[in-house]
Design a protein around this nucleic acid. Structure first.
Lengths: 146, 146
DNA sequence: TTAAATGTAACTTTTGAAGTTGCGTCAGTC
DNA sequence: GACTGACGCAACTTCAAAAGTTACATTTAA
C-alpha cells in the first residue's frame, strides 16, 4: 500500500461493507482484499469505530460491520473520523519575529479553513450506499457479495 | 525546516521580495533568513523562475528578484508554479479489477478537482504586495527593507 | 585572475506512514 | 474447561519522500 492511503482504505472498505451490511468482515479478509496488513486495517477502522461509524466484535466469529445504514454514512463522515487535514501549515514552524510570516499566516489560515470546509461539503453529498450502487462492472473477484 | 514546506518557503520569500523588488537577493541570504539551505532555496525558487515569477542572475552580484510587479503575483501563481497537489489519489494504486474502487474514484476525482480549484481561487485573491503591506509589526530583524 | 553567485547531480539524513511481530483479552465451539 | 479465532495494542522495523549536504561546473563582475 502506498503512502497516506488511510482515507482510500477506509472509503474502499466501507464501500464494500455497504454492499452487505449484515456480514461480519474480519480484518484479515479486509486486509487481503486491500493488499495490506490486518493490523493496519484495525488501526484505520478503529478510528471509524471511535467516530461511531463501525462496530467491532471480539472473539470467535467477531469482526467489523457498519454501525448505521449505508445511506446514512457519507464520505465526509469517514474523512472527519480519520482526523486528518488537507493542508497543515504548522504555526510553530513560523519564525515568531517575522512579520511577513505573520501576515502570510493570517491570509492563508482563512484560505485553508474555507478550502477544508468546501472539501467536506462536497464529500457530504455522497454516501457509501451511493458508492456501492454506482459500481459499473460485474467482476466476480470483488463484488460477488452484491 | 519542516516537511513539505516548499510552499511556505516560496510565499515567505516572495513576501519579502515584494518589500524591496529592486534588491537582488542571494540564495544564501534567503536561506539564512528562512532557516534552511541555499541549495534548497535554489531548488524551490528555480520552479518559480520556470513559471516566470522570478529571474535569477549568475555570477558576481547575481541573485534573485521578482520578474513582475508585486501586485501582479498572487499566491495562486506561487502554488501553481510549484506543481504540487493538495490531494493525490494515485489511480495506479487502485486495484484494477475492483469496481468499488472505480466507483469511488469517479466520485472522489470530481471532489478533488473542485476542491483544488476552490483553493486556487482563494489564493488568487491575495498578491504578495498584499502580504507585504498587511504586516503589522515593526520588528527590525526581518522587515527593515521596507 | 579571482571572487561570488547560480545550476545541478549525487549523496546522506530525517521523518512519518506503513508494515510486522508478539502477546493479552475476549467470546464462541468442541 | 481447553481451544480456536477474532480484536486491541504496544513496540519495533522498513520504506519512501522531503530536506539537507557536498561537490563541482559555469558564469559574471571587479
Amino acid at each position: 500500500m502506498k503512502r497516506n492511503s488511510r482515507l482510500a482504505l477506509a472509503m474502499h472498505t466501507l464501500g464494500h461493507m455497504a454492499a452487505n451490511p449484515s456480514h461480519m468482515h474480519t480484518s484479515s479478509e479486509i486486509a487481503e482484499h486491500a493488499g495490506t496488513n490486518p493490523v493496519v486495517v484495525r488501526r484505520v477502522l478503529g478510528k471509524l469505530r471511535e467516530a461511531g461509524l463501525l462496530t467491532s466484535e471480539k472473539g470467535h466469529a467477531g469482526g467489523w460491520c457498519l454501525a448505521r445504514e449505508p445511506h446514512l454514512i457519507t464520505l465526509a463522515d469517514i474523512y472527519l473520523a480519520l482526523g486528518e487535514r488537507l493542508i497543515s501549515m504548522d504555526e510553530n514552524d513560523c519564525a515568531p519575529d517575522c512579520c511577513i510570516e505573520h501576515s502570510l499566516l493570517n491570509h492563508i489560515s482563512e484560505v485553508i479553513k474555507s478550502t477544508e470546509q468546501n472539501f467536506i461539503n462536497h464529500l457530504a453529498t455522497t454516501t457509501i450506499a451511493d458508492v456501492q450502487k454506482a459500481k459499473k462492472c460485474k467482476c466476480k473477484t470483488c463484488c460477488d457479495e452484491a
